[in-house]
Design a protein around this nucleic acid. Sequence first.
DNA 1: ACATTTGTATACCGTTCGGTATAATATGCA
DNA 2: TGCATATTATACCGAACGGTATACAAATGT
Lengths: 194, 194
Amino acid sequence: MTDSRDNKQAIISGALELFSKKGFDGTSTAEICERAGVTKPTMYHYFGSKEGLLDDILLIHYKSFLDNLSMAATLPEDIPLTFFRLAKVYFDNALRDEPFFRFRAGLTLRNGEDTAYISSKKYIEQEGKIITDFFYTASQHIGNIRGKETLCTISFIGTINATISAYLQTGDEALVSDDTIYRLRQQFLYGIYS
Amino acid sequence: MTDSRDNKQAIISGALELFSKKGFDGTSTAEICERAGVTKPTMYHYFGSKEGLLDDILLIHYKSFLDNLSMAATLPEDIPLTFFRLAKVYFDNALRDEPFFRFRAGLTLRNGEDTAYISSKKYIEQEGKIITDFFYTASQHIGNIRGKETLCTISFIGTINATISAYLQTGDEALVSDDTIYRLRQQFLYGIYS
DNA sequence: ACATTTGTATACCGTTCGGTATAATATGCA
DNA sequence: TGCATATTATACCGAACGGTATACAAATGT
């Protein structure tokens, strides 16, 4: 018997790549299985349903991402440091796991009834909460963002994602460098809403 | 007989709203017809296929959007003015036609094999060309963005869309005000890459 | 050695999908 | 009025979808 974890992992990573390119509804279970080199009963043996597979994918990838975000925000009073760390988690995660970034980013601007969005909603909200909490802490020391914590959050995530997307399209590594983070930090904390 | 344009328009606007919420692949033709109050043969009489309907929707909405963008860029040498006008087209269009914005924005970060993305690709490229052309003109007068025209384009579109999305979620009208455009302009032309 | 668990393959099911054949109905024009 | 042209409704099609019953093969624990 081949190692079961190989097949399971092949299904997960292959499916995520397909979802990120063609969307959840645009990808068939047959396609997922063919790409992973398994048959449908094998996939249903592991995940129970197409949505179960999606849930597993989201759980695994979001857990690592959100854990890293939370760890980056353990010293929220050190505002410049925390901003830097948070942005770095976004960059690192996207470079290490491009399909997951594409999948995530494609959902961020779509707040509707898309199957994949509904399943991702709770994680997107957790992500938002971590960033919002940080901006609330920051606003206690930096007056000009007070009252704008929510919009700081949305703009922060949107701008970071746009920057990563720009890197993935152009290959310009300067985009995901520390310098970029310094500039974004300057804008968000001291410039953008003054 | 009811006015045919009513039905045709009802199908178009209803379908766009469904597509923006549930995605193209996640919306069934039966759903589209039910919402528009017509039967499937009626829809197929007008549009030939589900993709034909999508193409018509894209043609109508993108034409207006791209025309406005082109008109905003008729004086590219006046860089501050053109930047302002371009951003304003994005804001105005999104406020006037929210479903189309959501649909567009949901595709921007997803460069893959999604059905809706493939059909939209040519328009997205036209949009990109208009903005890129502007930044090339601007870079002839503003040295610090030279060589970064493509990434300026992607970041500009991404940041604008993130800002609009923030407005749609928070309802904070200050986000889509002229002041926001002034700040973005300052950042993009004189601050962000210096 | 053998029962049990785990994983895989063949073949298939019911449903929903996009799409259509047919015919009835409403309108514009003669 | 009656003909021609659009437009709509009923009813249906083949294909693809998500999902499964069954049985068999490989590993594991005793």
